[in-house]
Design a binder for these strands. Structure first.
Length: 302
DNA sequence: AAGATATGCAACCGCCGTAAT
DNA sequence: TATTACGGCGGTTGCATATCT
């Protein structure tokens, strides 16, 4: 047989936490730690809560050094950059933002950043609809085939973004060329073929503090010293700056610097990443893709 | 001022890989 | 080796508050 039963779901309390419950949980963990067993924790404390709920409350709210609200422009840029690169891997993204939780980052993206980015693109789509290529039109949700419907919303968003990039790269002749994804653009060392890193391989097995390092070791094209080449690094930095422009416009460009907690723009690493389970496949930023991305942001001129 | 709508956020749900038995 | 719980994660929901009409 397996382990002992978890909590009694019939008696556990749900809903918002009271200040008293918060205090009980916080005091206990600060004094005794979690003991490596969240399920047993509420019983020890005397809380009528599920262990999972305790864990969530601690990680997302009670844990020391948690920051709430007021995301900085630098954090915005990091979130957007990583989302475009790896998708909704909120725990990985949050790991790059000291004091932020995955739940916070997720909520912030869903309620603000996504609207800010996609909303602007939507405005532009409306403006340029007359000149849209057949390929773009066919990708509208009304005309999606079964295979396309099977894609996650996250993947679709990134697909739409990539399509925008390609349209801008070749605005007059996009329909003459097959859609080229970033991962297939290049035959050089940035190609995803050299970096079949699955979620399980690079994410689950590693500390959440070092996912990027793991990913770099597994997949990103490195020079002989184990770091991105200067040319590639230059592309990355340039792209981050362009992203900032996309988010905040020309007036705020150049504000990037040190984020609260010590993360700098340059600390965001870019890596090839094969989503493994995703039907879309790999999402990486080749030098070519970076260039396209820059075209994208410059054309928008927000 | 009141109702409708939009927004933000905390918490829950369900899935998956891992570990314990 | 099979079974089952645990831990972690992303997606979604529901409520409180803010804004709009």
């Amino acid at each position: 047989m397996g382990r002992a039963p978890c909590c009694d779901k019939a008696t556990v309390k749900k809903g918002p936490w009271s200040p008293e419950e918060d205090a009980m949980l916080k005091n206990y963990i600060e004094e005794h730690g979690t003991g490596g067993n969240w399920i047993a924790l509420p019983h020890k404390i005397g809380l009528k809560r599920c262990g999972k709920s305790c864990r969530l409350r601690w990680l997302n709210y009670l844990r020391p050094n948690i920051k709430h609200g007021d995301f900085t422009p630098e954090e915005d840029s990091i979130i957007c950059s990583l989302y475009i690169s790896i998708g909704s891997r909120w725990s990985i993204i949050a790991a790059q933002l000291p004091g932020r939780t995955d739940n916070d980052v997720k909520n912030y993206w869903n309620t603000k950043l996504k609207k800010r980015l996609l909303g602007r693109r939507k405005d532009r789509d409306t403006h340029h609809r007359q000149s849209a290529t057949p390929a773009m039109s066919e990708m509208s949700t009304e005309n999606m085939n079964d295979g396309e419907r099977a894609l996650s919303a996250s993947a679709m968003e990134r697909i739409q973004l990539c399509m925008q990039l390609q349209e801008l790269q070749n605005p007059l002749g996009a329909h003459h060329n097959p859609l080229v994804w970033p991962g297939t653009l290049s035959s050089n060392s940035f190609n995803s073929n050299s970096s079949n890193v699955t979620v399980a391989e690079q994410g689950q097995s590693s500390s959440m503090n070092e996912p990027l390092m793991d990913a770099q070791m597994e997949g990103v094209a490195m020079d002989g010293l184990g770091s991105p080449s200067s040319a590639e690094n230059s592309n990355m930095i340039s792209m981050e700056a362009e992203l900032e422009e996309l988010l905040y416009g020309e007036g705020n460009r150049g504000k990037a610097g040190v984020v609260d907690g010590g993360v700098q723009q340059g600390d965001v690493d870019w890596w090839s990443y094969d989503q493994g389970k995703s039907p879309v496949g790999s999402w990486d930023f080749t030098p070519e893709a970076n260039a396209v991305f820059q075209d994208y942001t410059s054309v928008y001129d927000i």
